[in-house]
Design a protein around this nucleic acid. Structure first.
Length: 567
RNA sequence: UGACCCAUGGUGUAACGGCAGCACAAGAGAUUUUGGUUCUCUCGGCCCAGGUUCGAAUCCUGGUGGGUCAACCA
């Protein structure tokens, strides 16, 4: 009993990350009456990636941990970039990751009316004004981080004039770019975001949800905090680059005089050998460097899903990497560890030969077929067993045979014995080669009938165990082998004169085929298997019953190839 | 030539003034009908300099290094 309790206790006493500390302190003081309400606020202008997954797991995880709630809100304030295609994919991805926003799906565009009223409040307080300068002029008069800006000539317009102009902006009397609404704060602030930021711009563009109802749209800064406020969010968690926005976030809430959530910033996720920037990801798709947003090499959620990652593995990854404020680059091997750990326990095993060479058991009866029994998953007895047809002519991996084996080679070689998993121990007697090329065509073996799995003699120790598949029963499938998309750890940090594109890995996709045991015929899209001794594979969406296609999620750990490389 | 943020093994992340721990990676061994899994072990760290203190990774000061900020993007 007491022992059963231990892991539970450990879990509860696990140290808190800095956000949890803030929340617990807020709860202790009673700032939000012990209420915890978070939100995940994507802009629907692209597909979600593993970095978003970190944020999703964080926000929904916090909601769950503190018996609170988590909203899904689309930050859709820029109709130029946004589209329902992205809304749909985001909905699907969050759901797939295993999170539920229940009845709390919101859009910043739901609040356009309210936001407009907030702007009017600021105007009436003399805290906002309509400015006629061009974008260029506003930029020039903003100054620089080290030099104060200068005030707009329109800064002193009367409240009445501002109300009139803002109303007419909304009515569509002015063309795009003619006027903006600006906050009246401080053009000399050391924080650039406080130098009379733009609140509203004129955009005669149809919005994916509000259509042509509006021709002025709020900027991020004017929409985000107020949306949080409207939804009674307690802790508004975002990434580090918004840290300098926080004074402005608080300024709007205070000046408008509404409920105040608390913005907290954490360091975004980076992973080695890939990129996380939406813009660059989009370029890869547009330039055809990958097949699409869901290319299995992409760090997108849909890419990882297609590759064969499980929601649990990604959630676990997000949990393990932690949350802090310092910049970080997570080693991709940690992600690989997470999916291996999950699939090792959940994926059934299959015999699949990726690079086949024929072996003939010379002393095995020509037409005999025996059913060999093999466990589906040694980690999970409940997964049962299956039958593998065995016959005279088989395939094994070409790499599992060497004519002149080095020291620690435990596999098949002339005169050597190995075990065929779940079947017999065989001995290599001779090798048939192509007289022209010298390539091995056939390996001739003999088997020991007393060593069939389960028989007493089968306990004989041999150095190696190989996977195999019966030639006439084998099912051929297409195999897609993936490697990292980039050749350097941090493609975002290229050498002088180069860009991330210069580091694209030309071998990130290798298409091959495999001979697989007949059980594989039952495989359907997204099914995951461990191909014995080689790796984890997932059925691709291109797969059909006649033409199976597998993605390699990740290879098995391979300490032999390491030994080989050292030589 | 500014403001703000950050700094713990190779990579991440703990420590709340009291023995620097965990995970991944790396290395060694045991087990194994997967060179997988599992188990054991090893390697390796507080950016620097002062100060406060009986005692500092932790607090203070000053350096150094890194990041963010000058879209009518989010």
């Amino acid at each position: 009993m007491a022992e059963n309790k231990l892991p539970e206790e450990e879990k509860n006493t696990r140290s808190l990350n800095f956000i949890e500390e803030i929340i617990e302190e807020d709860n202790r003081i009673g700032v939000y009456n012990g209420r915890v309400h978070t939100r995940f606020p994507p802009e629907p202008n692209g597909y979600l990636h593993i970095g978003h997954a970190k944020s999703i797991c964080l926000n929904f995880g916090l909601g769950k941990k503190y018996n609170g709630k988590t909203n899904l809100r689309f930050d859709d304030t820029n109709p130029v970039k946004e589209d329902t295609e992205y809304v749909d994919s985001i909905l699907e991805d969050v759901k797939w990751l295993g999170f539920d926003w229940e009845d709390r799906l919101f859009y910043a565009s739901d609040y356009f009316g309210q936001l407009y009223d907030y702007a009017v409040i600021l105007i009436r307080k003399g805290k906002a004004y309509v400015c006629d300068m061009t974008a260029g002029e506003i930029g020039e008069t903003r100054g620089s981080p080290t030099r104060p800006g200068s005030e707009s000539l329109f800064r002193s317009r009367s409240v009445e004039e501002n109300i009139d102009l803002f109303t007419r902006m909304r009515l569509g009397e002015f063309p795009d770019g003619a006027k903006v609404l600006r906050a009246k704060i401080d053009m000399a602030s050391p924080n650039m975001h406080m130098r009379d930021p733009v609140l509203y711009r004129i955009l005669h563009t149809s919005h994916h949800r509000t259509g042509d109802q509006w021709c002025i749209y709020p900027m991020y800064d004017f929409a985000h905090g107020q949306s949080d406020s409207i939804e009674r969010i307690t802790h508004s968690i975002c990434t580090l680059e918004f840290e300098v926005h926080r004074p402005l976030y608080d300024w709007f809430i205070r000046e408008i005089g509404i409920y105040s959530p608390r913005q907290i910033e954490f360091a975004r996720l980076n992973v080695t050998y890939t990129i996380m920037s939406k813009r660059k990801l989009l370029e890869l798709v547009r330039d055809g460097n990958v097949s699409g947003w869901d290319d299995p090499r992409m760090p997108t959620i849909c890419g990882l899903r297609r590759r064969g990652f499980t929601p649990a593995s990604i959630r676990n990854f997000a949990d393990i990497i932690g949350v802090a404020k310092r910049d970080n680059v997570i080693d991709v091997s940690l992600l690989e560890f997470c999916i291996r750990e999950d699939l090792n326990k959940s994926a059934n095993r299959l015999m699949a030969v990726l690079n086949p060479v024929r072996i003939v058991i010379d002393n095995y009866p020509d037409d005999l077929v025996e059913d060999m029994e093999s466990v589906n998953n040694p980690e999970d007895e409940s997964k049962g067993k299956r039958k593998l047809p065995f016959s005279k002519s088989l395939f094994i991996e070409r790499e599992d045979f060497m004519e002149e084996p080095p020291n620690k080679f435990f596999r098949l070689a002339p005169g050597r014995e190995v075990r065929l998993k779940a079947a017999y121990i065989i001995r290599c007697e001779s090798v048939a080669k192509d007289p022209e090329t010298g390539e091995i065509i056939e390996i001739h073996c003999t088997y020991d009938p007393q060593t069939r799995s389960g028989m007493p003699e089968s306990n004989r120790k041999v150095k190696g165990t190989l996977h195999w598949v019966s030639e006439k029963h084998a099912v051929k499938a297409e195999i897609r082998l993936y490697d990292r998309l980039f050749t350097i750890e941090n493609p975002d940090d290229p050498e002088n004169g180069k860009t991330y594109k210069d580091y694209l890995n030309p071998d990130s996709l290798r298409i091959s085929s495999a001979m697989i045991e007949p059980t594989v015929k039952n495989a359907v899209i997204l099914d995951k298997y461990q191909f014995e001794r080689t790796g984890y594979f997932s059925v691709d969406k291109d797969s059909t019953p006649e033409n199976l296609v597998f993605n390699r999620v990740v290879p098995l750990k391979d300490s032999w190839s390491k030994v080989e490389k050292v030589k």
